[in-house]
Design a protein around this nucleic acid. Sequence first.
DNA 1: GATTGCTTACGAATATAATCGTAATACAAT
DNA 2: ATTGTATTACGATTATATTCGTAAGCAATC
Lengths: 126, 126
Amino acid sequence: MSKTFKPTESELDILSILWEKQRATVRDVHEIIQLTKEVGYTTTLKLMQIMHEKGLVSRDESSKTHIYIPCFEKEKAQEQYVGKMIKTLFSGSTSQLVMQALGHHHANQEDLLAIKQLIATLEKRK
Amino acid sequence: MSKTFKPTESELDILSILWEKQRATVRDVHEIIQLTKEVGYTTTLKLMQIMHEKGLVSRDESSKTHIYIPCFEKEKAQEQYVGKMIKTLFSGSTSQLVMQALGHHHANQEDLLAIKQLIATLEKRK
DNA sequence: GATTGCTTACGAATATAATCGTAATACAAT
DNA sequence: ATTGTATTACGATTATATTCGTAAGCAATC
């Protein structure tokens, strides 16, 4: 029964900030957005208001300056996007995605160790 | 000088079919799209025409029924989307993406072996 | 050569997303 | 109280994406 959740590009950018900070005001969010994008304050405000209408975020209105909180877990978004990506960009092959990621983006020794351990677990569980 | 390439959702669906088949007519593509989506033939046609205008695909017009060919490599799209995803959904952590993928999507023994080998290479190259 | 069926071209309508200006409101400082 | 500043609300505009109807071309078949 979980609704298909499908934020737009801009909404996802905002969500990613909210997941990071847990809770934030429009200004908090806007200041971060502004680092990478030339955009007015009211634009960010409006986007967050729309996200509120859609139920993507909730907000604490007890003080004048509202505080926004994401309405669902980052993990849910991760699952959805990773799945879609494996399907449309990697012909359904998980390992191709994994290898693309490892091949093109840095992972340190510790990270690699953790991955090896996960693989070991998966192999045992066969 | 490579332009930022940014296909829409629908365009990406079409591209993914073209990458799979290498070359295809509008009808070929439409028949596959139709399996998952209720949409008219001319809609698919129009989308592909627009993609042609944008330079996302080229086409062979020598016979009446045009044959479409993707204009750039799947790998380029993979790189771009994986990068964006690591950034917005995994706080910049490649290994988190990798572990999410391996944890939630099936990979067989052979796949896992290939990944282990890649990791070994990366470790050596330290 | 008329009819049928499949094709492309094209314009228009509709839907969705993103942007911002302006006004109203609250609150703090003078 | 008045002024200044930051906030929200809201409407309007613009941009972009999606959808499809209709017409025109072409080739095979009747």
